[in-house]
Design a protein around this nucleic acid. Structure first.
Lengths: 365, 365
DNA sequence: ATGAAAGCGCTAACAA
DNA sequence: TTGTTAGCGCTTTCAT
């Protein structure tokens, strides 16, 4: 009697649900339709061993017929979510869109789906959001999160970091060789005869000496090269925000000052674009002041911009990050670091140092 | 005896798990620590009514102390996932990054997390991936998915589409007024004396007449304006891919032909950038051939580009889409459509039509 | 090779 | 206001 009652209730619930919205097809429905157990269906959708060909075809037929789609939430509770998370700080930065493209391509044909969480601040909350969603693996581009925090995170989930020079224990890294890239930039400018070279970079937060971020390395390499060339007294570091507008404003100040530079090495292309805009608006035609960027984003090669820049091969980074992540998810435990050697693309934004008017600041070396 | 046995087993399992990786803190752990029931904790984390202040503080203390984070998967199985999905076709398109920024800002302070799924083809699979992940609401920018399919989808989940001119029954839309925007473009060019105006747009797939995509509307409006102005015979539509390079190649062909246009209306800024690059490389200085884009992306205002373009207010679209989605999730059922009136930004890429050499093609009207 | 059954962490309906 | 309890849909032993 009790049973009958419960069955009735159950039925009513089901019916009323069906009236409003069609209840999603579950693994149980498929099992029933194929005349097998739920476990069998589970094995089929996971490509697990121990299923006869006959069963496989029967089950697949039922899946197709019913339009069954496994609930990721339910799968995540027991096994995998088949989801890889990518955390990125800013979408305005074209370099990151290259990384995304590479990652997406590398995932083609795998059962994994890429989801991207845009960060707001330092990246902790976006990474946590992805972890909360039980991603099976995580790629992040946050230069600001603490290595120790990452190590702890990476004990519980596979992690690959992009753009970190850390020597990590529990996670992998994919990074461009910022020292080599920056040395190429400086060699190029010095060879063109520049002495007053300024470096426009992002805020203190991402360029703090010793913080091992890409921008910190670029800054340090800039400084070293200036020292080595004997131009230590011309070292000029301008810290600004991360957008074109920030760079624009800072550049306007920079060129308004006495002893203005003859060349500007910008921390990335987005900044360089802002620098170029400021120079143009200030009436300084093309390489009157030379400008170099970093990332070789698509717009750098545009004739109206023609920006000398360092190609970091963002797509390769994205692909490589996915490959390493999948390896790690398959069981590799020892950390790997993959460094790409970037390549300088020389364009019209750089040219020989323009000699300053005679007599002005003649003590200069 | 049976009980004792099960307790032992349970304990063993727990212990061995703890040896390998620290088992995540569950709602049960919090309940135990706070000396309350799981239901009480559940109510606290959901801000549900019916909890005393005393209990709330006790529970929150326990949550903080244990570092508890609810499992999204488990929550999704019973209630909400607190996740909103955004499907977008291409990251190269800067307009979409504006939309993302707007959406992310609008979500600040809500309990919802935005996750983005990059589409590969038409968008079906990325949207399905998000639905499989039980997002509580969905925003999509797929011009190519079938309205009927969307209607069915929207019966089961809250949906807002960006950039669709559909009259929908079950979902909302946020869209720019492409007719108005395109009319502004054409009025501007015609007023400058242009007659041979070409339209460079994306592939047939997204511009098919009657398909009600933004690009179809822009194309149709272009054609109408040409008819109205009496220049029907100068109508020239160039369909190409969606990248700068595609536009570059098509433009090279276009200007190599006889009767080349004096102005080009590009379907969006990314194409316009490619058009400008081709013109520059072909030695045609700035407004010798006028160019107009659509989206007013950041680079359009750069002095080296200075592209006349239509501002679609992508950030506003993103914010509005989130607002409408949240409304819908709260229960609104009747469909809404929100149309933004775009605005033409005139820059140096457009100028008066350059008179052609006398005697050449003098029958021209 | 196949199936039965336990339970992942949470919420919702109900009982107290 | 608080606690009890029944699952959500799936995977995973463990029998068969």
């Amino acid at each position: 009697m009790l049973y009958a009652c419960r069955v009735l209730e159950r039925k009513e619930t089901t019916l009323s649900t069906e009236l409003s919205r069609p209840r999603p097809v579950t693994i149980q429905d498929v099992a029933r339709a194929a005349g097998v157990s739920r476990a069998a269906v589970s094995k089929v959708i996971r490509d697990a061993p121990g299923v006869s060909t006959a069963m496989r075809t029967r089950v697949n037929a039922a899946i197709d017929e019913l339009g069954y789609r496994p609930s990721v939430a339910a799968r995540a509770m027991r096994g995998a979510s088949y989801t890889l998370g990518l955390e990125i700080p800013r979408f305005g930065n074209q370099f990151l869109t290259q990384v995304i493209d590479g990652a997406r391509d590398a995932l083609e044909g795998t059962p994994y789906q890429l989801v991207i969480a845009p960060a707001h601040g330092e990246g902790y909350s976006a990474i946590e959001a992805l972890v909360d969603r039980q991603v099976d693996g995580l790629i992040a581009v946050s230069p600001l999160v603490e290595p120790a925090w990452l190590e702890r995170l990476a004990e519980r989930i596979s992690v690959v970091m992009i753009g970190r020079h850390d020597r990590a224990r529990n996670y992998d890294t994919v990074v461009g060789d910022d020292v080599s890239g920056s040395r190429e930039v400086m060699a190029h400018l010095l060879q063109l005869g520049h002495r007053r070279i300024a470096h426009v970079t992002e805020s203190e937060a991402v360029t703090a000496p010793g913080s091992r971020t890409p921008h910190a390395f670029r800054l340090e390499t800039y400084t070293e090269c200036m020292f080595e060339a004997g131009y230590a007294k011309h070292i000029k570091v301008v810290r600004t925000g991360s957008t074109e507008d920030d760079a624009y404003r800072s550049t306007m100040e920079l060129i308004g000052a006495r002893d203005r530079p003859t060349a500007i090495f910008a921390g990335h292309d987005q900044l360089a674009i802002g620098v170029l805009a400021a120079l143009a608006d200030a009436g300084l035609s093309a390489p009157e002041i030379s400008v170099v960027g970093y990332d070789n984003t698509r717009i750098a090669s545009h004739p109206g911009i023609s920006l000398t820049s360092v190609d970091q091969f963002g797509e390769v980074m994205g692909r490589k990050a996915i490959a390493m992540l999948l390896e790690r998810m398959r069981g590799r435990a020892e950390p790997r670091g993959y460094a790409l050697t970037p390549q300088l693309r020389i364009r019209r934004s750089t040219g020989p140092a323009v000699p300053r008017p005679v007599g002005l600041d003649h003590t200069d070396d």
